[in-house]
Design a binder for these strands. Structure first.
Lengths: 129, 129
DNA sequence: GCAATATATAACTATATAGTTATATAGTCA
DNA sequence: TGACTATATAACTATATAGTTATATATTGC
């Protein structure tokens, strides 16, 4: 990253930007346990199918996800697991600050139990069909 | 990053967003060799002083840079060098793709010689006063 | 072919923010 | 004190994009 020119910086910035949206992180997070199709991701994300498709299209464009059309469905999966390294680095840095900032600490650790339960319910539902 | 709730995802996303602007990356890149004051960063960045200040303020807010007011000037430096790990991870991923995409490859490797020379000139000028 | 389902895209709105110019604030030195 | 320099902020414009609804495009099974 020494002496990158402006075009390169723009490129790197765009890459970060792809990861700079909560909904896209949610989608990537949902793909941790393996591939899912658009309908499943729509259900998990809680927004419209059109929106999920748009985000997937962008993630695809940056090779963050792999697209595989199978039968009537399109399955997406993580293209390069090293994006999780990125996320963990970021989480680590945020964690450092959490020590000082108690409200954020709570935000992370008490992790909205309702939401977790809902997610588990959806996952379960998706597995059992 | 397993089962992060929505608020946490938003927080992580915002962190990425802080790194998702070319001008901010340029500033961070300029701080690789050590602290610089706002005037110096303004000269390197090539945009207005007001804009640099705004970006520095945001970077400060996310603890990406350290602020130290000394005399008439304010010096900024990298708060946590692990952000460069982030950038290198991203550059690494982009590099993987470069193999296939020749134009991007050129973009990175032929790194605008003029710009590099200009940067060196500015750096030199800053050092000699 | 036709109905049904799954995904992608078009068109639009609302919002966030990068950049600007002008101005305020703060420190230095005479 | 007042002139000068350095940084931050306010107010504004232009642009990008997340989200929506409605529609188009595949694919499957009858």
């Amino acid at each position: 990253m020494s002496a990158l020119n402006d075009r390169s910086l723009e490129y790197v910035a765009k890459y970060f930007k792809a990861l700079a949206e909560p909904m896209r992180l949610k989608v990537l997070n949902a793909l941790r346990n393996g591939e899912k199709n658009v309908g499943q991701l729509t259900e998990i994300s809680g927004c419209t199918q059109a929106n999920v498709s748009k985000h997937l299209s962008l993630l695809s464009q940056y090779d963050l996800v792999k697209r595989e059309s199978r039968g009537n469905c399109v399955f997406y999966s993580i293209a390069d697991p090293s994006i999780y390294e990125l996320c963990e680095l970021v989480c680590g840095q945020i964690a450092k600050r959490m020590i000082a900032e108690d409200d954020i600490k709570k935000m992370f650790i008490e992790a909205d139990k309702l939401q977790t339960q809902n997610l588990q319910l959806i996952e379960k539902k998706l597995k059992t069909g």
